[in-house]
């Protein structure tokens, strides 16, 4: 727990207001508003092509919205959150081993590299720590990608399809780790088509269909499994 929990973590909140994104003549998002704060886990549900990935990249600041804006606020004025993304890709260097990938990310974030092996252990991929990530299965790569993300100690975790390609046990592990991140006071935003699994950890869900928000549902914190 010591890895994920930091009592001094500042509180952040994000508010995406009336975000629209147009690529050429394709509308990816239309007038989408969401908000979430530290300690919350917002799950964006939707089928492939519903705009989930675009929304995550806009929140991450990697894609500029065509209209609308994303605003961050903090309880310590002026402080910017450290944002981490596990997108469609895993953001790994194929020729580096799992441990090298995670350690490099930790180092660049100014953290102690030795946390790398612990993180791989938490995600149950430590047996593969010394193998190059290109030789790993899709499910293992996904978990190494999540370990890489956690190694950077982000205040905000944006995770695209955290359960895709994982077997039951691995998906449980990932769900547990994301729930712990939420409990440790991080802001977690996931995009998934696996609504059943994400409802176990989400504090709120929104459903995205063809770039628009259809429904929003809040989930009582007591009901959450950790």
């Amino acid at each position: 727990m010591v890895l994920l929990h930091s009592p001094l973590r500042p509180h952040f909140a994000v508010r995406a207001a009336a975000v629209t994104k147009v690529f050429g003549d394709t509308i990816a998002l239309w007038d989408v508003s969401i908000d979430c704060g530290s300690g919350g886990l917002l799950a964006v549900h939707g089928a492939n092509g519903s705009g989930k990935t675009t929304l995550l990249r806009i929140v991450a600041g990697l894609t500029a919205p065509t209209r609308g804006r994303v605003a961050w606020t903090s309880d310590s004025p002026g402080l910017r959150p450290r944002i981490g993304l596990l997108g469609h890709a895993n953001h790994l260097f194929d020729e580096l081993t799992a441990i090298e990938n995670v350690a490099l990310a930790a180092r660049l974030a100014g953290r102690d590299e030795t946390i790398a092996i612990d993180l791989l252990g938490r995600l149950a991929v430590d047996a593969n720590a010394a193998r190059r990530t290109r030789d790993l299965s899709a499910g293992s790569r996904r978990r190494v990608g999540l370990a890489r993300l956690l190694a950077t100690d982000p205040d905000v975790l944006l995770v695209d399809e955290p359960f895709a390609g994982l077997d039951e046990r691995a998906a449980d592990t990932v769900g547990r780790v994301l729930g712990e991140a939420r409990d440790a006071g991080r802001l977690v935003l996931i995009a998934t088509h696996d609504g059943a699994r994400s409802r176990l950890i989400a504090t709120r869900t929104v459903e995205l269909r063809a770039g628009r928000i259809r429904t929003t549902e809040s989930i009582a914190t007591e009901a959450l499994a950790t």
């Binding site: 991450a60 600041g61 990697l62 450290r82 944002i83 981490g84 993304l85 997108g87 469609h88 890709a89 895993n90 953001h91 790994l92 260097f93 194929d94 990310a105 660049l108 974030a109 890489r148 993300l149 950077t152």
Partner: peptide
Amino acid sequence: ADDAFSGLWLVL
């Protein structure tokens, strides 16, 4: 490849 770029961009 594997969009390591975005990872670096956000962490640095």
